[in-house]
Simulated scan of single mutants.
Amino acid sequence: MIFKGSAVALITPFDENGRVNYEKLGELVEFHIENNTDAIVACGTTGEASTLDDEEHLAVIKYVIDKANKRIPIIAGTGGNDTIHSIYMCQQAEKFGADALLVITPYYNKGNKSGIKKHFETIASSVNIPIIMYNVPSRTGVNLAPSMVSELAQVKNIVGIKEASGNLAQVAEVCRLVPKDFAVYSGNDDTILPLLSLGGHGVISVLANICPQETHDLVYKFFEGDINGSRELQLGMKPLIDALFIEVNPVPVKTAANLLGFEVGGLRLPLAEMDPKNVEVLKQQLVNCGLKLQEGTC
């Protein structure tokens, strides 16, 4: 298994000119290692991968891998809606030393059932490192059905799924059908504990960008039998989680990181600044969770 616990879906910091800020990226990697994040996903949705060109995308993946230097597993976001292009990105990430790949279901052109299956099988056959499938129908327009997940789980190096359908009945069916060593990770911060109770192995988290220790603890308290402690963290952070999704991800979490003094820069269009009313909601929930806003942002 690649990891158990909390993997952060890492934000990508930009400088004042909108370029990737590698110095700040390195600081974020160190922050997560110091605060017990269990794995890092580089260039996922939260990392604004859709607006990174190939050169930037691969440079960010390589930088994070090199900076981590095997101290923590690095999972590279390399999926897309073009199978051949996805293969190229996956193979490059493998060459850089990625521990695993996060491969999203094809979006926009979607693919029929046989096409989606062949998409994942073809990518898997092109690399030798583990693959985590990513099911997020709210973004892709495609739902990876439990029966399909079960079939793809038989592929040697398809070892897990990030399940972000928001459908716990579907998650339960996935957990029922897949092999015991097939990892199921929550893709929704508001239902980490329910997914763990169904047999899940952790979360790939947006929340962990600003609450890494707490997100790790939420998962490990469950694993260690402290269900009440895990539940208290899940419910206690629920208002903050809601605020982090008050607008499309990663707009609120990147805003939150800046409010907390991480200085990760702005967003790339078509993402832009939050509505001021929503910023006030976010600020309040950050404070309510005991997080200290940078001076001048209150």
Rank of each mutant, 00 (worst) to 15 (best):
S197N: 13
V253A: 08
K162S: 07
K110C: 13
S6T: 09
V184F: 04
I61G: 01
Q91S: 07
V287Q: 14
L286W: 08
S150G: 09
N69W: 09
L196V: 11
L240S: 02
C175A: 15
V206L: 02
L193S: 04
D181N: 11
R268P: 14
K117M: 15
L233P: 01
G290H: 10
M89N: 08
V171P: 09
K254R: 08
I161H: 02
R268M: 10
L207P: 01
H119D: 00
V136G: 04
E16K: 04
E23T: 14
V8Y: 06
F14A: 09
A98K: 00
T191V: 14
K62F: 13
V149G: 09
F31S: 08
A49D: 10
L52G: 10
E224Y: 12
S205G: 11
V29H: 01
Q284F: 15
G44S: 07
N258M: 09
S165Y: 03
G290D: 08
L271S: 11
T255D: 07
L291Y: 07
L152A: 09
N278C: 13
Y22C: 08
I192W: 01
L152I: 14
L28Y: 06
M1W: 10
S114L: 15
K292N: 15
D189H: 07
G187A: 00
L291C: 07
L28D: 02
E121N: 01
L286K: 05
I116E: 03
T45Y: 04
H32R: 02
I129K: 01
A172F: 11
G199N: 05
G5A: 07
N288S: 12
I40E: 04
D38P: 08
Q213V: 14
L235N: 12
E263F: 14
I161A: 07
Y108E: 05
N109E: 09
V29K: 04
A100W: 03
K292Q: 15
G200F: 08
S125T: 12
D226L: 12
V281Q: 05
D189Q: 03
R231T: 10
K67F: 12
N69T: 11
S86W: 01
I210Q: 00
K221C: 11
